[in-house]
């Protein structure tokens, strides 16, 4: 069997066996449940919902993709690289018939699979919750748009994983990776204050790329933003893989 496939299967199994993964699913369940309860309460007390329940999946996605999922991705990625180097568990795989480049790709693919699972799981939960409301027909008519937003959210989330993997090559623990990533994102978010011209060149600008898929769709903007995401992905992927290849297991 292809080494990358074997590596990806192993790494995915490792991620799924982590408590963090289960906790994230619980968070998405809690967020969805809270939004639904809030909506039902406002309907009962004020006569109208706080948010249109047909848009509940998008509201949940906006919340999850702003804080929870990026945090989960950074923590998992930090664990898979810096964490495994610090507790030396990576040795178990480095001495197996798989090159470091293939192992690196396997880890990134496994993180990608876990992101897809989290997003699709969140979508399923939020869609089911959205049905607890009046306009069920609208929920179903919004289903393709909402689902495409969830699927497309995988791409900017993958960019976060690739950048976190790159940062992990410089750190000695997953928590340090998390700190650097948070500081980096704060720094990039404050950049527009200094110069607005720099905004298109910041990777953080494109993290809400999935928002192109609901509302007014603009093909040119979508492709343009995707090109930036891909360009950043390729740069950080090559950089990370090179550093991983060169790293000594001290």
């Amino acid at each position: 069997m292809n080494r990358i496939m074997i590596g990806t299967m192993n790494e995915t199994y490792k991620i799924f066996s982590k408590k963090k993964f289960v906790i994230l699913f619980l968070i998405s369940l809690v967020v969805t449940a809270l939004s639904t309860i809030m909506n039902l309460l406002t309907v009962r007390n004020l006569g109208a919902p706080l948010i249109n329940n047909a848009n509940l999946p998008i509201t949940v996605l906006n919340f999850m993709s702003t804080i929870t999922i990026p945090l989960f991705i950074i923590m998992i990625t930090g664990d898979m690289f810096a964490g495994e180097f610090s507790d030396k568990s990576i040795v178990m795989f480095l001495v197996r018939p798989i090159t470091r480049n293939k192992l690196y790709i396997s880890k990134i693919l496994a993180i990608g699979i876990s992101i897809i699972c989290v997003l699709l799981g969140t979508f399923a939960i939020s869609f089911m919750a959205s049905l607890i409301g009046s306009n069920v027909r609208e929920c179903f008519s919004n289903l393709p748009t909402n689902l495409s937003a969830y699927i497309s959210a995988t791409i900017p989330m993958m960019l976060i994983a690739i950048i976190a993997a790159f940062v992990s090559q410089f750190t000695k623990s997953s928590s340090f990776t998390l700190v650097i990533m948070i500081l980096g994102s704060i720094l990039m978010s404050s950049m527009p204050i200094i110069s607005s011209q720099i905004v298109p060149f910041l990777p953080t600008t494109y993290l809400n790329w999935y928002q192109n898929f609901y509302g007014k769709f603009n093909l040119l903007t979508t492709i343009n933003e995707l090109s930036y995401i891909l360009a950043y992905g390729i740069i950080f992927m090559f950089g990370g893989a090179y550093l991983f290849q060169q790293k000594d297991m001290g």
Partner: peptide, 9 residues
């Protein structure tokens, strides 16, 4: 080599 390496959980 050195310490045993495995996935603890």
């Amino acid at each position: 080599i050195e310490t045993p390496s495995f996935i603890g959980n």
